[in-house]
Design a protein around this nucleic acid. Structure first.
Lengths: 113, 113
DNA sequence: CCAATATACAACCGATCGGTTGTACGTTGT
DNA sequence: ACAACGTACAACCGATCGGTTGTATATTGG
């Protein structure tokens, strides 16, 4: 379970670690856009943008719904908030120096301490 | 300097997109730790941990100070907050459904990100 | 002085990344 | 009916990633 949430965190931060994807996320948080409408905004191939959208979708940061031949993407604000809350948890560690509840904050990789 | 802030954002999200680095960051936010003290906590080589620390340092998420032959790492909570504020900005885009696409493309330089 | 400690960094390796082109397939409008 | 559109995916490529080992350089303690 902690392993899964770590996988999810990895995927979300990775998805956000690319400026094109952050820009796409901004657009789909503002409103629904088809993949081709998104692709038109960038100086790269349709396939490249489609892959960026897929990365964001896999991370749960956006969802897609079909409308005819189009695929409409919408940003998932709850997922964005969940990333923000991870950072808030880190900030709380700093604030309180609560080193003892470390399991709550970050699912530890295999270490023996 | 939109390009530089995007570079910084790339570096920060990338640094956070690895569970070992998130765990290291959590530890150094809780208090100063030498690189070797950190390395002792993980089932990987010292060099691997040292590189993770370097990635976090390059992203500005931690700072190092020398104490004799040791290098003490501390988490930079301001940097963590700056990442959180990027997500808050995204959430605001969702909340307001900002229709001004031009603002999304060219963020005004006097805003904090 | 000398051995142990702490760090840094280079070289290497397999895996993944971010991009490309090409192909396939369902949907739509005329 | 059928050409154009929208999407998905595979194969490929150079670059980067996350790890390793090995070496170099300070610094410390006995």
């Amino acid at each position: 379970m902690t392993e899964e949430s770590a996988d999810r965190a990895d995927a979300m931060f990775h998805a956000l670690a690319d400026r094109t994807r952050r820009d796409i996320l901004r657009r789909v948080l503002a409103g629904e856009h088809s993949v081709s409408a998104l692709a038109a905004a960038y100086d790269m191939s349709f396939a490249a943008v489609q892959k960026h959208v897929a990365v964001l979708a896999k991370a749960g940061l956006l969802t897609k719904r079909r409308r005819g031949r189009e695929q409409l993407a919408s940003g998932d604000v709850a997922a964005v908030r969940s990333v923000a809350s991870m950072l808030t948890a880190l900030e709380q560690v700093w604030r309180g120096r609560i080193a003892r509840i470390d399991v709550l904050i970050a699912p530890d990789p295999d270490q023996e301490d």
